[in-house]
Nucleic acid binder design. Structure first.
Length: 473
RNA sequence: GUCCCCAUCGUCUAGCCCGGCCUAGGACACCUCCCUUUCACGGAGGAGACAGGGGUUCGAAUCCCCUUGGGGACGCCA
């Protein structure tokens, strides 16, 4: 049997980090079964039944986020709203079968019930007023909602693949609304009908839906359908230990991209946040597809740790392809420094990437560190760098310049050997010689190896930059 | 408030299901040292946890109960 999973976000905002992980787990589970089992599908369904809060921008943000993360879905995304007629038909069927009924309660009455229930320490809110009442009692001019006749006694059990067996007494659950007074389906109905119609076999979603699963289980039963396998994964908490929400530190996928995180690093981080494979930390997507399962999902909530994500990202950057990295940096720099880039910028970035990439944990940091390669002369200097080019520094640099201008072999190693020789002749340490060069070449006091930089820049540009430093203000 | 769930270093976690191999392992962060032209990277060390209390057992991080703490859900939102 083909495993079918789905990611079903409501388009009321960006694709936040929790949603991204849910999507990743669903995607991975489907891919795993596609590779090792009897097939797997991963669908995307936009839960846009709340017309007032759904926006096209949010839908696009979800598409973009998923695509950036590399989580391609099968087929076209399904619009839940577009399926409203099917949802309605299901409700009508239940009504006809006597498994649902019309309720004419006003919002005021419901509020009253809610308050009463709370005051009496009960969870069940709706008191079943219209459950067995004669429809002829219906007040004129009131559009009813359709409620499901939920079982009054006994209990509803979910065999959750993450949480284990979870049981609730049916007296805790009231008769949920299936169709609103305006005839539109509620989420609870729509989810069940859609998951059934789409052939979803495994519902992997956030823990906050666990209590919904009870009502959905009752609905599946009433509709005469088999319920899918449920796997409710613990939520991601913010650093403060509370559920991540939009006002609680949760950011959209594009925010992580802008901060300079690599999608593969974010994927690895998210995978490892709540799921484990022994002591493995660095897990490629390929391995993840091989290894992912529901059994190793943890049961407790995890806190989001930006520091660890950053560290992981650094690892991925160090292992990334230089051309890929150079392109990412070029894109940023072109946007940030329009018109100021040297025509050799891309080549230099590519050639100097080895020294650059082990010094950065994010693409933004990488870009900042790489900027001196990309910019045209003259290079602006930081205050500290300028200080190193005053007095003795300048004298030293002048001497170095003449030595460099007469050097035959312009390579990393040869240049270092030359510098070392020069330093020892003057009774100096190599560092004393390297620092002024660094300041002149990069305008900074921190950078990759100055000899590597000279190699990348070439003789002409190197001497030019030194001259700029010697003659400049 | 009611219902449901969770509980190992600061954080993510391994171990727990099938008690002994656990003087509890790894990763991030932190501290020290080494490498070193700066900063990083890398390497070697260090500090750091089974929430508490009862059981069961020869033996419990592992099984049971209670307490405490944390989280989630209680909509004609999704």
């Amino acid at each position: 049997m083909t495993v079918v999973t789905r990611f079903a976000p409501s388009p009321t905002g960006f694709l936040h980090i929790g949603g991204a992980r849910t999507a990743l787990y669903n995607w991975l589970f489907a891919k795993h079964h596609e590779r090792h089992g009897t097939g797997g599908k991963f669908y995307l369904r936009i839960e846009d039944t709340d017309r007032a809060r759904s926006t096209q921008e949010a839908v696009d943000a979800i598409y973009d986020g998923l695509q950036w993360l590399g989580l391609e879905w099968d087929g076209d995304a399904v619009s839940q709203f577009a399926r409203a007629d099917l949802h309605r038909a299901a409700a009508e069927r239940l009504l006809a079968e006597g498994k649902a009924y019309k309720c004419y309660c006003s919002p005021e009455e419901l509020t009253e019930m809610r308050e009463k229930a709370r005051a009496e320490g009960r969870k069940r809110m709706y008191d079943g007023t219209w459950r067995d009442r004669d429809p002829s009692d219906a007040p004129a001019g009131v559009d009813p909602v359709i409620r499901m006749k939920a079982p009054l006694e006994g209990e509803t059990v979910i065999e959750d693949r993450v949480q284990g067996r979870v049981t609730v007494a049916n007296e805790q659950l009231d008769d949920m609304v299936l169709l609103r007074a305006d005839g539109t389906p509620t989420y609870m109905l729509a989810v069940v009908v859609d998951d059934h119609d789409m052939g979803v076999t495994h519902v992997i979603r956030g823990d906050d839906h666990l209590t919904n699963a009870f009502r959905q289980t009752q609905l599946y039963l009433a509709l005469g359908w088999d319920a899918p396998v449920f796997a409710h994964i613990p939520l991601i908490h913010g650093p403060d230990g509370a559920k991540m929400s939009k006002r609680h530190g949760a950011l959209g996928a594009e925010a992580y991209r802008d901060m300079g995180f690599l999608p593969e690093a974010l994927r690895n981080y998210l995978l490892r946040l709540g799921w484990s494979h022994g002591d493995d930390e660095i897990i490629s997507t390929d391995q993840a597809i091989d290894w992912f399962n529901l059994e190793n999902i943890g049961k407790s909530a995890a806190r989001f740790d930006m520091t660890k994500l950053t560290s992981l990202n650094g690892t991925y950057i160090r292992e990334a392809d230089n051309g890929y990295l150079a392109d990412l940096v070029m894109n940023r720099l072109q946007a940030e420094q329009p018109g100021k880039l040297a025509k050799e910028a891309r080549d230099r970035l590519f050639k100097g990437m080895n020294g650059l990439k082990e010094r950065a944990k994010t693409i933004s940091e990488l870009s900042e560190n790489a900027i001196f390669y990309a910019l045209q002369r003259p290079i602006e200097k930081t205050e500290k760098a300028a200080t190193q080019l005053e007095g003795d520094g300048a004298d030293l640099l002048r001497e170095i310049r003449s030595v460099l201008s007469s050097t035959d072999t312009w390579t990393d190693e040869a240049l270092m050997a030359t510098a070392r020789e020069f330093a020892e002749a003057g009774g100096r340490k190599l560092g004393a010689v390297a620092q002024p060069i660094r300041a002149a070449l990069t305008g900074n006091t921190v950078s990759p190896s100055v000899f590597e930089i000279m190699d990348v820049l070439g003789r002409e540009e190197t001497l030019g930059r030194i001259d700029d430093a010697l003659t400049g203000p």
